[in-house]
Simulated scan of single mutants.
Amino acid sequence: MTASIHSLPRRAEPSLQPLLALVADGMNSVNAVILDRMQSRIPLIPALAGHLIAGGGKRMRPMLTLAGAELVGYGGSRHYKLAAAVEFIHTATLLHDDVVDGSDMRRGKKAANIIYGNPATVLVGDFLFSRSFELMVEDGSIKVLRILSNASAIITEGEVDQLIAQREIETSEERYLAIINGKTAALFAAACRIAAVVAERPEDEELALDAYGRHLGTAFQLADDAIDYDSDADVMGKDKGDDFREGKMTLPVILAYARGNAEEREFWRRAIAGERNGEADLAHAIELIRKHDAVLATRERARHYAQRAIDAIASFPASAAKSAMIEAAEFAVARRF
């Protein structure tokens, strides 16, 4: 019988605690690798990298590598370095994103580019990408290298596609889902899949973990879209309305624009073009998004993908790992940060 996000007995508020508890010991090993490999003879590199790496964050992607390994019964240690490689890829993309977006905040404090400048931030992102590939090569698996290097390329394609779509008011829901499949879901999928690869599990288990990660990543990003219009900066760790000011066509905007009348659509055209992006304009945007239930609809779509993630691992036997991964999917939708 397939587990359901609606029917499973669970806490009133889904939590990451089961996942955190499951991988706590393994994450100590992963964090040791991260701290070791972010070092350099150039002091600025560990200082800048550490500003972001030590600044919190859920570490969802490396945790999913470890959880996937638990799910398939892997008893080795290769996945620690690979989970660190996954986190380095993710951190590098965050550093580059903050430069591209001109972000002021990341994880509740000043973004690295504000403190250290754009050139250093880009170069340290490149350094972390390089470290990730060193770790992959050390693992020695061509298949793992293919999966993670392909994910890295897809992430960049997704980011470029989002840049092209920025301020394009006619961006469709289908195109936006394709963008987030690239910029977010691809690394979730790869992080999960490599666990089955190192465990030398059958391809159907690889594909199941890939699907779990891909759908979870999509749900996670859709929830982020909703949060940007539905939470305060002290909860989010970034400025409320960042996506709005940057002219990003995220799903709440796409839905509100599609459902709006002529006057509302004209407001969105001017707002996304950058002509109306003040505080009063943001307040009006939030009002329109609420009027058309666009945040609610975005969360409903996130819930749909979270359910698909849960369904993807339905064939695995009951275990602490499976339960934790199911609740992680529920948390991805319910979270407010």
Rank of each mutant, 00 (worst) to 15 (best):
residue 235 V to N: 10
residue 233 A to R: 13
residue 123 L to D: 00
residue 135 L to E: 04
residue 315 S to P: 06
residue 165 A to C: 15
residue 266 E to P: 01
residue 242 D to G: 13
residue 139 D to N: 14
residue 226 A to I: 03
residue 6 H to V: 14
residue 228 D to F: 09
residue 63 M to F: 06
residue 36 D to M: 08
residue 251 L to M: 10
residue 174 E to I: 11
residue 270 R to A: 13
residue 319 S to Y: 05
residue 155 I to T: 03
residue 329 A to N: 04
residue 294 A to G: 03
residue 164 I to S: 08
residue 162 Q to W: 09
residue 210 D to N: 05
residue 331 F to Y: 15
residue 123 L to Y: 02
residue 277 N to P: 00
residue 160 V to P: 12
residue 72 V to D: 03
residue 57 G to T: 06
residue 123 L to A: 07
residue 298 T to Q: 07
residue 81 K to M: 07
residue 75 G to A: 13
residue 26 G to D: 08
residue 104 D to E: 14
residue 73 G to A: 11
residue 166 Q to T: 15
residue 141 S to G: 11
residue 25 D to C: 09
residue 90 H to R: 12
residue 155 I to L: 15
residue 145 L to Q: 06
residue 7 S to L: 15
residue 26 G to W: 06
residue 100 V to N: 03
residue 77 S to K: 13
residue 56 G to Q: 12
residue 80 Y to R: 07
residue 248 K to S: 01
residue 258 A to R: 15
residue 311 D to F: 02
residue 16 L to K: 00
residue 13 E to S: 09
residue 179 I to V: 15
residue 252 P to L: 04
residue 241 G to R: 05
residue 263 E to G: 10
residue 171 T to I: 03
residue 157 E to V: 02
residue 105 M to Y: 12
residue 207 L to Y: 00
residue 257 Y to Q: 10
residue 34 I to E: 01
residue 162 Q to Y: 10
residue 53 I to N: 03
residue 197 V to C: 06
residue 157 E to C: 05
residue 59 R to Y: 03
residue 311 D to M: 06
residue 91 T to W: 09
residue 71 L to G: 02
residue 73 G to R: 12
residue 82 L to K: 03
residue 82 L to F: 07
residue 15 S to H: 05
residue 210 D to L: 04
residue 160 V to F: 13
residue 215 H to D: 14
residue 309 A to I: 01
residue 215 H to S: 14
residue 308 R to S: 13
